[in-house]
């Protein structure tokens, strides 16, 4: 898929020992994350185990990296697998962008790569992180 960026490509070929497994391997019986969520680029810890609830939901996120000059600022993809938490302080480290149409995008707090997630200002208790945009280790 041409739209996938460099970082996503890296994610498909992770170093031994910390590879992303199938969805089942990431969930415990309650649908919480077994592993820590970390930034794909700098390994900054985003969320500790057992704090995120897995949900399926369709949310549109801009691409992480520009693929071409033609690509518009808000070109992106609809993602479906997310972790959700109800309080921003549940995160270990996370950054929030300025607001665009009532949405704040979540980014890595250290290297600022993103968007890795999504927060609608009108839904005060829903902070989403896309499974595809973080590593699980």
């Amino acid at each position: 898929m041409a739209a996938l960026d460099d970082i996503s490509t890296q994610r498909r070929d992770p170093p031994d020992g910390e590879e992303d497994k199938s969805l089942q391997d990431l969930l415990n019986a309650e649908g919480k994350n077994i592993k820590s969520l970390v930034c794909q680029r700098c390994q900054c810890k985003v969320l500790r185990p057992n704090l995120g609830q897995h949900v399926q939901k369709e949310l549109f996120l801009p691409h992480m990296k520009k693929k071409s000059e033609q690509q518009g600022a808000m070109d992106g993809e609809t993602l479906k697998e997310f972790w959700v938490v109800d309080d921003m302080y549940t995160f270990e480290n996370v950054g929030f962008t300025n607001t665009v149409n009532d949405i704040k995008y979540l980014i890595c707090a250290d290297c600022e790569v993103g968007p890795i997630g999504w927060h609608d200002l009108s839904k005060k208790k829903e902070f989403y992180i896309a499974l595809d945009r973080v590593h699980h280790i």
Binding site: K66, T97, N98, A109, D110, V113
Partner: peptide, 23 residues
């Protein structure tokens, strides 16, 4: 630069960062 980083100057972070949660 609060913690170790690998900031990529190429990255056009132009939506802009509002704030960060750090532990």
């Amino acid at each position: 630069r609060f913690t170790d980083d690998t900031f990529d100057p190429e990255q056009p972070a132009t939506i802009g960062v509002d704030f960060k949660v750090k532990t």
